[in-house]
Amino acid sequence: MWNTWRKVNEGMIVLGIESTAHTFGVGVVQEGKNWLIADERSKYVPKEGGIHPKEASQHFMIHAPRVIAKAVKKLKGGINDVDAIAVALGPGLGPCLRVGATLARGLAAYFNKPLIPVNHAVAHVEIGRFITGLRKPLIVYLSGGNTLIAAYADGRYRVFGETLDIALGNFMDVFAREAGLGPPYVIDGKHVLDKCADEGEKFISELPYVVKGQDISLSGLLTAALRLLKSGEVRLEDLCYSVREIAYSSVIEVAERGLALTRLGEVMLVGGVGASEALRTKFSLMAQDRGVKFAAVPPKYAVDNGVMIALTGMLAFKHGMVVRPEEAYVKQRWRLDEVEVPWLKD
């Protein structure tokens, strides 16, 4: 994909800012072989419970200046070397988004750089395509706030299936929290639910498995699992195992449905939950059986980061997608399928 880009500006450099949820990230990328210049991140980890939007945004406000400065220092000429500033304007948590948006607007206005609006979900897809080299895959985007199956058609990524209630990552965190396994929810790159499930031996059959057409639903599974947990009638590890099997299998089933429907020959896993080894193994088994190619974004770039915003910003910038700083509003519910992606052709 990289080398098929129009050479508008050889060696173009874009700085991207990510602040949609728990990570404040700044990435700097350059067109060409040595594409990665900077990848700086600061992650907010809640002491208890889930992400508290206001606390997360305060964390960002404290750490953002340092993160930006560290990234800019990687450039010989500092911020002057940057051709454009890209920022994730959504979807995400309002207070968090506003920190990134405010800083990006400020940088763009003060240093007179074009400002590029980037959709966070599109950015997960683009870094995935860039790194995996897949051209037109069925996209499975799994994270704390997103669970969706999409594919490119006619100018946009169209959503084929999604969760009807809670996202897979959110589901895993809530279960882990109620079971006393977290926070933190991820230890050494592995989700605590996966760790617990690996010790499970017995499949508990009374839990609900819900697939509706191309969609999944996880709230019923969560309720039933928590009821079993509180009853104390089952081994926690067996419950972790069963819950994980059901949740992952339902996602893979809707991915298979997407493949059957679109007849695409590639499937790509993106987003933070895609870092799960167990999930990847299941996906490759499915892909093998169907005779399709499978690739997942490496964990480092599967989670939220500024690099993916910079990469996507570069694609958008080349297609003239800029926004005036005073009009760069955050969009908390900016859906993947609302965004034009002119860099892809049918």
Binding site: F203, S205, Y209, Y241, S242, E245, I246, Y248, S249, I252, T281, K282, F283, L285, M286, Q288, D289
Partner: peptide, 13 residues
Amino acid sequence: PKKYRDPELDSFI
């Protein structure tokens, strides 16, 4: 049968 599913879940479904 789906290899990615737990055998019990698989035969149940």
